[in-house]
Structure formats: C-alpha cells, structure tokens
Computed example of a mutant assay.
Amino acid sequence: MTDKPVAEMSFEEAMRALEEVVGKLERGDVPLEESITLYERGAELKKRCETKLKEAEEKVAAITLDGDGNPTGTTPVEGM
C-alpha cells in the first residue's frame, strides 16, 4: 500500500489502492484493528474517486458543439 496522501492521488491511483484495500478486507485475514484502518482508508479512496469522476463529468459537460456536432471549445464551469 502506498503512503501517498489520498488527496494527491489521481483517479487511477485511488482506484488501484481501493481495489487493494477491498481485496485485503475480502480475504478476512487481517486483525480487527487493521481492518478498521483499511475500511477508513477505503472510504477516503472511494470519496476521492467520486470527486475525480465528478470533475471529469463537469469538464465533459462544458464542451460545446457546433451545428454539425463538432467540438468548438469549452464553456467555463463554475469552480473550474
């Protein structure tokens, strides 16, 4: 498991780390205290993934199309 702060992870890094956490929890071979720590980290990673997906959706939604359906640029999205 990486020690990189969750807030600095890319979507892909967070997904890989989340898959690792889920795998460990599913195996059930970790002590209770470690399971709690893993669960907390998993919750942070899930939130990071959701945030990054929302950001990507907002960027895609901001792309404007011309009459032929071709991208013409982007429209600023509040908070971006």
Results as ranks from 00 to 15, higher is better:
Ala7Cys: 07
Ser35Gly: 15
Thr37Cys: 03
Val30Asn: 12
Glu50Asn: 11
Val21Phe: 00
Thr51Trp: 12
Val21Thr: 07
Ala14Ile: 05
Asp29His: 09
Met9Ser: 06
Pro31Asn: 09
Leu25Tyr: 03
Glu40Asn: 12
Lys52Val: 07
Val30Trp: 10
Pro5Trp: 04
Leu45Ala: 02
Glu34Ala: 11
Leu32Met: 10
Gly23Ala: 05
Ser10Ile: 04
Ala14Gly: 07
Glu8Asn: 07
Glu8Thr: 11
Leu38Lys: 02
Ala7Leu: 08
Arg41Ala: 07
Gly23Met: 05
Pro5Phe: 02
Lys52Ser: 10
Asp29Phe: 09
Glu8Val: 07
Phe11Pro: 05
Tyr39His: 10
Leu18Ile: 01
Met9Arg: 10
Val21Lys: 02
Val22Lys: 12
Lys52Phe: 03
Asp29Thr: 00
Phe11His: 13
Leu25Val: 00
Lys46Glu: 11
Tyr39Gln: 13
Ser35Arg: 14
Asp29Trp: 09
Glu12Asn: 14
Arg41Asn: 07
Glu50His: 08
Pro31Val: 02
Met9Lys: 05
Glu44Gln: 15
Ala17Trp: 06
Glu19Lys: 11
Val22Ser: 04
Lys46Asn: 10
Lys4Phe: 01
Ser35Glu: 15
Ala17Gly: 02
Thr51Glu: 14
Ile36His: 04
Met15Leu: 14
Cys49Gly: 08
